[in-house]
Structures are given as structure tokens and as C-alpha cells.
Design a protein around this nucleic acid. Sequence first.
DNA 1: ATTAATTTGCAACCAAGTTGCATTAGTTGT
DNA 2: ACAACTAATGCAACTTGGTTGCAAATTAAT
Lengths: 136, 136
Amino acid sequence: MQLYFIIFVAMSIIRRTKSVNDITQFFEESKYAVSVVNLVERFKEKMNKTTVYRILDKLENDGVIHSFIGRDSLKWYAKCQGCQSGHHTDTHPHFQCNSCGRVECLPVKLQLPEIQNLSIEYAEVNLVGKCTECSN
Amino acid sequence: MQLYFIIFVAMSIIRRTKSVNDITQFFEESKYAVSVVNLVERFKEKMNKTTVYRILDKLENDGVIHSFIGRDSLKWYAKCQGCQSGHHTDTHPHFQCNSCGRVECLPVKLQLPEIQNLSIEYAEVNLVGKCTECSN
DNA sequence: ATTAATTTGCAACCAAGTTGCATTAGTTGT
DNA sequence: ACAACTAATGCAACTTGGTTGCAAATTAAT
Ligand SMILES: [Mn+2]
Ligand SMILES: [Mn+2]
Ligand SMILES: [Zn+2]
Ligand SMILES: [Zn+2]
């Protein structure tokens, strides 16, 4: 409750452009990850694709959203939980349903394999399968 | 030893085209994974890029090589170990050194997270970090 | 009100990957 | 050995995700 208030105030004080606000708000409300093609399509009436790409870049740098590359070679974006500018602390696997195509962030702690002589900095884990709804 | 002999005989009997043989042999000898741009570049004197793409498709279907999408959005290929046409049993994580850029297959058994209500069919795990040589 | 700085749109471009089709090489049957 | 057929290859044109340079438009600073 208090957190939401703080976020609200911050969003008012840190004045953002209309475009940035539109995309930010979209991610606030979206439950799933969204591919970049989908985003460009979705906002094509409101803004140019170049603008979309630029804003996505910015939001990712600011720790508002994060991205990963899907098996379709597309860039997918989803909102971050508690990340800050420069450092993404919110690393987790992603799941894509190969039936309905939806992609979601999995709030699961990853345990990386320990490999001798390799220092692993980060991991990208993409799981593919069937989601709850598509299993029934 | 016997296995190698069998493979040798098989390669003689199952006649492949020159192009397929060239690419197959390249993978036999290569220790690391190779990006598709690299492959097209590497074979551009010998064959057209379309041919390279077609042969890669074929070899992947035949269970000779496997592919994954890197953080660079490129398709990377590496040789399979004991896979057969149609079914890839050789699933494992991949590691990319962000210093020298080399990508290798990790012969490690993956343990996938159990997620409620999700049936996971396969996982793509890409690890990024520093390799042995680049750590020194 | 002027000027300076940021943001946006647009068009042109780039690179990975695909497609259609003509040409060539390889197989098969006689 | 030759014709007839099949499969592999080359080439050009196209598609698509993504980038770049620059001019026009907004917004902020003085
Ligand atoms: Mn996520
Ligand atoms: Mn591999
Ligand atoms: Zn589904
Ligand atoms: Zn290295």
C-alpha cells in the first residue's frame, strides 16, 4: 500500500514523456512477457517503431523491464521486480507454452551447475512446454 | 574404436553430397559451437549461403548437430553425441565466454525446476561468464 | 521570447534468414 | 551409353527484426 503510494508519487515527480509512460503502464498491467514484434504492433498507432525500440532500451537500462531471447529468435520483454538502474537482480527462468504461445516469468530461484574452471556470471534459462490452461 | 569404424563405414555407404560431407566433417573436428554467420562465412567459397542453411537444417533433423539461440540472437550449432533422427536426447547447457566469445557444450546433466501445473518438455540453458583460458 | 536540449518520426539502411525458380549434378532404367 | 527422372545447388529477390542519420517537433532553461 505504502509502496504503491511511493511509486505513484515518483511517477508524478519524475516526469516522463507520454510515450515512456504508455509503455511503462502497459508493462505494469501485463501479466506475461511480450515479444518486441507484439509491442511494435501494439503501439504502432501511437508511436513509431524506432521510438518503441528506444524506449524499451531505456526501460531495460533503468531496471524497469528485462529482456531475453526466445527460441523464435525474438527479443521478449517483461517487467522487473525490484531491479535498479544498471543492475538486474531479478534473474529467473522463463517459460513458453508451445500451445498458446504465452511466455511467463517463473518466480523460481535458479540453481546453476558448478562447472570446474568456469566462472558463470549469469544464466538464461528458457523452458518450453504446456501451461496450466493448455494442459486441460 | 569399434564405434569409429562403424561410423567410418556408414559414412562410406550412405553416400552424401560433397557439401554435406564438408559441413559434417567440420563439425566432427570442431570442439566448440559455431554461429551460423561464422559457418556461412567459413564456407562461402565452397557453397552458397542458402545451401549452408539447408544443410544445417538437414543435419539437425538427422540428429547430427543441434542448435540453440545465443544472446546475440544468432543461431549456434554444435555436434550431437548419440542423437538420432527426430529425437534429440543430448540436451545440455551451453556456455559462452564473454571475453573470447567461444561457445561450448557443457556435458552436464540439467536439473530442471519442478513447477506446479507446468509440464516442461525441454529447456534451453545458456550460461555466460569467463572460460578457463580467459580467467588467467 | 530566445535559445538549448530531448524526444520523436521518417526514410533509408543492414543483416539474418527464406523462397521461387532455373541450372547442374547424380541416379536409375533400358 | 543414353534418355529420363530425381535431388542438390546457385542466384536473385524478398522478408523481417533491428539500427542509424537527420530533420521536425516538444520540452526545458535562460
Ligand atoms: Mn522475466
Ligand atoms: Mn551443445
Ligand atoms: Zn498455454
Ligand atoms: Zn574465453
